[in-house]
Amino acid sequence: MMRDSALGLVPETLEHYVALGQALWSAGPLGPAELEVARLRNARRVNCVFCKNVRYDIALQDGLTEARIASIDDGYQDSDLSERDKLIIAWVDQFYTSPGEVPDALAARLKAQFSDAELAHLALAVLYFSGFSRCAVALGGMPEELPLMKISVPE
């Protein structure tokens, strides 16, 4: 699918993009469901219609449900999401709003819940999701609505 998009116009970079995506989803300490929480929050922040309506099959297999996905929205702090999910969402929000000004309380919660390796994995994943989703938005031509689509990590 990625190769059929505008990204295919630059094959020299596309292959690296695909390889990075595969590595992020298949390796590292965070599981697919938690990565999907980060990806879907990023999709909402960027308002990428395509990204918002995609569900990665490995995340669903890892236990992600539509009920959990529905909570990845404004007001998530008061939802039934786990502390880890809430912190993943907070990381994404901080990435976009004020990355250089993290409240001490948030930093302490992140350090208490995640190992260094998990935070590094989250940081790289959000960087990747952000770049990919903003590619889609910046290129334009996004429909206003799309049905939910279950897909696999691009190979």
Binding site: W91, Q94, P99, V126, L127
Partner: peptide
């Protein structure tokens, strides 16, 4: 953004 977040 990641660098700033990580450093903060």
């Amino acid at each position: 953004r990641t660098e700033r977040l990580w450093s903060a």
